[in-house]
Design a protein around this nucleic acid. Structure first.
Lengths: 249, 249
DNA sequence: TAGTGGTCTAGACCACATT
DNA sequence: ATGTGGTCTAGACCACTAC
């Protein structure tokens, strides 16, 4: 059995050459997007995948390790290789940057304020790269750490990627895990843009600060595993006792 | 010649076992800290290093690739492996997160406002983990993008790590490269904590905003290659036309 | 042409978790 | 005892750069 799924040679057209391990990496990602393996499930071992793809075990290994670094997979010695699930504290902290001053990071509770289907404003449609007829689901939440409100989230989701979401009666706190379980959308990358602004009446009511107090505002664009833009958020945060934490290396 | 610099066995005491590639990685880092190779210089090739360390070429390769990912080394096919230098636009953008709205990222100019040796406040000394007798060099700068002030930096440097700095007549814009060249301190990691606040008189004068306007404030703790805390900054930024950009993945 | 890093393979052995 | 990923090695060949 010598059949290889992949090409190891420069294609005759001018297409970019990709090394085998890169092709394996993209193929495995594609198989996850197509749900051959679902979040939490175990993949076949390195030798089985190597045979299926027609490459050596070492090449599969390199691809799987790269995907582990980018948090698409989780590997456990003596156990197996698994599709990462957006559950467990580690995965949840990953995209929640707000921390109470002089405290360890902590996950907030969520309280829903609004939840409805909308026609997007021009700005929202542009940010999410929507067509003229696309609708968005608008979800507004208040987040609390130790029962104190710290964050007001306005979330815009393209309805086409979340069919039926606006008719669901209950939503869990951990939205990113919910996207993954119910809509096969795994959050992969986010871009936050942070500014300072003054609290308006709505901010003041929800965050228990005074109108005019300086607060943090940040927008977030979220991309799924396959690169689709799946979420736009506008966040307002108290910043008297909380800060946005960034580690660069 | 079979002598290995490293141990491949669990040490009899309870010390943590480290795989060979990890030992090589730490040893190479240590050699850079000790200036066996300076920033910009080329290392011996993989086989020469393998012989020197008494391991195989593949093991050296794994260590060098990891150090390349963490930006300590730069590898160029057909050329060699080099100690990274904090120069070149890429390296400079790496730690400057402020971007003008709707513009491509751009590097700011710097204008020095203050520069003197100080006894640190209790807060500064705690942040930098200083002893009772340690002094700090205080440097205040105004940063401008397209000739417009956007950022006011108050920088605190432990004098013990920057001997003679406070007597130098000229400082370049690119401080991190300057630390590396003159004090053998390579910036490796930073932690920023971002808040919103209101402009005071000093902020207003330097950033050309009104007293009371909401502005971004962020502190930065900086660590060198060997893990030493080498810098604490308190930054104030205009945020009307600028934002702090964070990409998570 | 020579020297470098990049890719790919094959195989031995170790460490860890589960049964 | 079995099966998994983790480490380490050795060697062949390719791609890029410089001289």
């Amino acid at each position: 059995m010598k059949g290889s799924k992949f090409d190891n040679k420069m294609s005759p057209s001018g297409l970019a050459f990709q090394p085998l391990y890169k092709q394996v990496e993209e193929h495995v990602t594609q198989l996850i997007v197509e749900q051959r393996w679902k979040p939490g499930e175990m993949l076949p071992n390195e030798f089985q995948l190597a045979e299926e793809f027609g490459v050596s075990q070492g090449t599969v290994r390199k691809a799987l390790n790269t995907l582990t670094q980018s948090k698409v997979l989780t590997r456990r010695q003596g156990v197996g290789t698994f599709v990462s699930e957006h559950t467990g504290n580690q995965a949840l902290y990953r995209f929640f940057p707000l921390v109470e001053d002089n405290q360890a990071p902590q996950l907030p509770e969520a309280e829903i304020i609004a939840f409805e289907l909308q026609t997007p404003t021009k700005n929202i449609a542009e940010q999410l790269n929507l067509g003229a007829d696309d609708k968005v689901i608008f979800l507004s939440r208040k987040r609390l750490i130790n029962q104190v409100a710290c964050l007001l989230e306005d979330i815009y989701l393209p309805e086409k990627y979340f069919p039926g979401l606006h008719e669901m009666p209950e939503l869990p706190h951990t939205l990113y895990h919910f996207y993954q379980l119910n809509f096969n959308l795994t959050v992969h990358k986010t871009t936050d843009r942070i500014k300072a602004t003054s609290a308006n009446q709505r901010d003041a009511e929800n965050l228990e600060v005074k109108v005019g107090d300086p607060i943090l505002m940040f927008t977030r664009l979220t991309r799924a595993l396959d690169g689709k833009l799946i979420e736009f958020r506008i966040n307002h945060c108290r910043s008297d006792n909380y800060h946005y934490l960034v580690d660069l290396d």
